[in-house]
């Protein structure tokens, strides 16, 4: 399935977002195929998160259209799961109840809730921490709780907004690799925002490079690396070449963004 786009999961056409007079985003057009892993890299403030929230149904576009599975998006949908930059865990709930939160909102009966949550918790390796509270966990563990919660509702699309941004480099690569293994098994589409070029290359089928504000797509780079991925692929020539190409584009945009800010 991987690398071979069967049909379109997400289809964004000429989407723009304006806040008052300021155009924050677009016009932008992109597609994500079923089961495809697409990363977005771009300078700070280029509208990556806005784009993600638009596809998640949390924000409306100012113009253009967003379709998911062929239907015009009007708001959040059940089969889309979002993993936010900070873990968005609920500090008053145990880890297990945090994972079950999305199911509770959907009124899944208690027993089924518990069973699914325990299963997903095991998927991210936190089964021994079910009764702990988020404050007792490290930042990386909390983010794994958020990922387990995202997986409980059998999503066909996961939107991840720099989920490992607060973690150190080594932990981040390990965690993103774990995430990749999970989503490969579930065959869901992923839109993944990151600042790490390495991470983007390691995980993605395609990497989209965005410009400084108003965010547009500069390049859409296919990553021709075999599946399943492992961290060793980063040393392959194709990976190095893609990383260099992305870095070249990013550097220019980052300089532009810094110039505009000063």
């Amino acid at each position: 399935m991987r690398g071979r786009v069967v049909s379109r999961l997400v289809d964004v056409q000429d989407a723009t977002k304006k806040f008052g007079q300021v155009t924050a985003l677009g016009p932008i057009s992109l597609t994500i195929g079923e089961g495809e892993f697409v990363s977005i890299v771009g300078p700070s403030g280029c509208g990556k998160s806005t784009l993600l929230e638009i596809i998640g149904g949390l924000q409306h576009t100012s113009s253009g259209s967003v379709q998911v599975r062929g239907e015009e998006l009007t708001g959040p949908r059940d089969e889309t799961a979002i993993v936010f930059q900070d873990s968005a865990t609920l500090p008053w709930r145990t880890v297990l109840d945090n994972v079950a939160f999305a199911l509770e909102a959907r009124k899944v009966p208690r027993d089924a809730r518990r069973r699914i949550a325990e299963e997903r918790l095991a998927t991210v390796g936190l089964q021994d921490f079910a009764d702990h509270y988020p404050a007792q966990l490290s930042g990386g563990m909390r983010q794994r709780v958020a990922i387990a919660r995202a997986l409980t509702t059998d999503p066909d699309l996961i939107l991840a907004d720099e989920p490992f941004g607060a973690l150190d480099e080594q932990t981040r690569l390990l965690m993103s690799y774990e995430l990749l293994r999970v989503v490969e098994r579930l065959a869901c589409g992923v839109l993944f925002i990151t600042h790490s070029i390495q991470e983007a290359v390691l995980l993605s089928d395609r990497v989209i490079v965005m410009s400084a504000r108003p965010g547009r797509i500069l390049d859409d780079i296919a990553i021709p690396l075999p599946h399943p991925r492992d961290p060793d692929v980063l040393s392959q020539p194709a990976a190095t070449e893609a990383a260099n190409r992305i870095w070249g584009l990013i550097r220019r945009e980052a300089q532009l963004a810094m110039g505009a800010a000063s």
């Binding site: 149904g57 959040p76 889309t80 799961a81 968005a88 008053w92 999305a102």
Partner: peptide
Amino acid sequence: VPATVTKLARARRLTARQYLTKVLLPAAV
């Protein structure tokens, strides 16, 4: 209530009542 938790609640389509009992009140306790 942290902004991301409110976003999570919206993304998970909590009803107004669910938001009150499962997010707002516990957060305020």
